[in-house]
């Protein structure tokens, strides 16, 4: 796609999306981090849906400057074919009049270069942000880890004051990110500082089984999936759920 057309499309989608969000006023839950975004996003959506809430999450990994509006508007990508963009262009306008727009949007945010987070936050204003962990993945386009961490600080800072920032407490840069926020900060993971603390993990025949302690209550979680990252995703989802219930 020609850069000129891409820019026009990007701004068209951005402003329609902002208008759609202003009309429908969904609660936005942002999920960002170097790894485990998709599974965390899915766990949060599952928890919300279990409570009977209508929630929408990104299709595939639509999480960039064009992907994010598509995720919010629930539209397909035209990828590199001009004519394949027509349904998205028309559909974007139709979203203004959508009668059953979801109450919750659970949105993965993708950051691959400096400035990406600032742009994404010019489209959305999250009530809740989850930062799943920061590693050297995607570091290539940044001048160093500080630059990359800076993107997540922007998200923590950009989360509504009345909201929540849930951070993977086992990540060594997580504390630094948390300090940037004026919202409530909660940690999840195995370390002592975590409010959603993973106590026990055992591998069952159908997936991981974990005990997660939250506010003195122990949740026994059967994941139906294999891998510790699913337990972290579930712990994050418990914190998000608790916050949503409290407001």
């Amino acid at each position: 796609m020609k850069p000129f057309f891409k820019k026009i499309l990007q701004y068209y989608l951005k402003y329609i999306t902002k208008l759609v969000l202003a009309i429908h006023k969904p609660v936005i839950i942002a999920v960002a981090g170097s790894a485990n975004k998709t599974f965390t996003r899915d766990e949060i959506r599952k928890v919300l849906e279990k409570r009977g809430s209508n929630a929408r999450a990104n299709l595939k990994s639509f999480n960039t400057e064009i992907g994010l509006p598509l995720a919010i508007l629930n539209l397909p990508s035209g990828y590199n074919e001009y004519r394949n963009w027509l349904p998205a262009i028309k559909g974007a306008l139709a979203a203004l009049f959508e009668t059953d727009f979801p109450k919750f949007l659970v949105l993965e945010l993708g950051v691959s270069k400096k400035g990406d987070m600032k742009y994404l936050l010019s489209v959305i204003s999250p009530e809740v942000s989850v930062i799943t962990g920061i590693t050297q993945r995607y570091i290539e386009s940044f001048s160093g880890m500080d630059d990359l961490v800076g993107e997540y600080k922007i998200l923590a800072k950009g989360t509504k004051r009345s909201g929540l920032v849930a951070v993977n407490g086992d990540n060594s840069r997580s504390g630094e990110v948390a300090k940037s926020s004026q919202a409530e900060i909660l940690f999840y993971g195995k370390s002592e500082k975590c409010q959603a603390k993973i106590l026990e993990i055992e591998r069952g025949s159908n997936g991981e089984v974990a005990e997660i302690s939250v506010g003195g209550k122990i949740h026994r979680e059967e994941l139906g999936r294999f891998g510790e990252h699913h337990i972290y995703a579930r712990a994050a989802a418990i914190l998000v759920d608790k916050h949503i219930q409290s407001v």
Binding site: A35, T38, R137, G207, G224, R225, F226, G227, E228, H229
Partner: peptide
């Protein structure tokens, strides 16, 4: 690449196969 293995895990889950991208 971890990001590729994570995508593979997602794809496998769509096909009813559940494997840990980090170790499996």
């Amino acid at each position: 690449l971890p990001e590729l293995r994570e995508l593979i895990e997602v794809k496998l889950a769509e096909e009813n196969m559940f494997y840990d991208f980090e170790k499996e």
